[in-house]
Simulated scan of single mutants.
Amino acid sequence: MPRKRRLPDVVTLKLPTYEQPGDIFDVIFESEEARKMAEQIVEYIKKNKRMGWEEYRELFPPEKHYLYFRVMKRMEALGLIGRGAYNTYILSKKFCDRLEYLSKLWLFKIGKAEELW
C-alpha cells in the first residue's frame, strides 16, 4: 500500500527587499530549471483544466522526474495547486487567501483596521 504524501509544515520564501519580483516563481523557486518546470506545469493545467498524477511522464524526460516531484510538493504545500477528483492536480487560490490573511493581520497590527472593512 503506498504511503500518504507528506507536505512540509513550513516553506521558506526569500522576499526581495530592494526591487519587486518580476514573477511569483522568482520568489518561490531558487533554480531557473525549477521555475521553468513550474511554469510548464501551470500552463498545462490551465490548458487542460487538470493534470493527472502520471501525466508528468509526457511532459518531462525521465532524468527530470526527481525535480518534478520537488516542484509539485512545494507548489502543493504553498497552495498554488490542489488535489481535484481522482487525485488530479488543479490550480488553487489557497496561496492568495494566505497572503490576504497576512496582509489583514499586518493592517490590524499597525492600527489601520478601518481599511479592512
Rank of each mutant, 00 (worst) to 15 (best):
I28S: 01
M37T: 05
E33D: 13
E100R: 07
W117T: 09
L78T: 00
R83Y: 05
R74W: 02
T12A: 07
K104M: 10
E32A: 11
P21W: 04
R3H: 11
R83K: 15
A34N: 13
E55S: 13
K36N: 15
F95C: 11
K109C: 03
P2M: 08
P21I: 05
K64Y: 14
K64W: 15
M37Y: 05
E114P: 07
P16A: 06
D26V: 10
N87E: 15
K94A: 08
K104L: 08
E114I: 10
I45Y: 01
K94E: 13
E43G: 03
K94F: 05
K14W: 03
F108P: 01
Y18D: 15
R35Y: 13
F60I: 06
W106G: 04
Y101C: 04
Y89S: 02
G52F: 02
E100L: 11
G84Q: 04
R6V: 13
E114L: 11
F108G: 12
V10M: 06
L91R: 07
K73A: 04
P61I: 14
R6F: 08
L59V: 08
G111N: 08
S103Y: 13
V10Y: 02
Y89Q: 02
E32M: 14
D9V: 09
E114H: 11
E100M: 06
V71D: 03
E63L: 10
G52W: 04
L13T: 09
P16T: 07
F29M: 06
N87I: 06
K109F: 02
P61G: 13
Y18W: 11
L80M: 09
L105Y: 07
R50D: 04
K46P: 04
R50S: 11
L78C: 01
W117P: 05
I28H: 01
Y44C: 00
A85I: 14
V11F: 05
A113P: 00
V71R: 02
Y66P: 03
L102G: 00
L15D: 11
Y89N: 01
I110Y: 09
G111P: 00
A113L: 03
I45D: 00
F60Y: 12
G82A: 13
W53C: 10
I41A: 00
E33F: 13
L107R: 10
E43I: 12
I110G: 06
K94L: 11
K112Y: 08
P8Y: 07
E76W: 02
A34D: 14
E30T: 11
I81M: 03
E43R: 13
K4V: 15
T88A: 02
G84W: 06
V11K: 08
A77P: 00
R5I: 12
K64H: 15
R6L: 14
E76H: 06
L59R: 09
K94V: 06
Y86N: 13
V11G: 07
L59A: 06
E54Y: 09
E54N: 10
L107Q: 15
R70A: 05
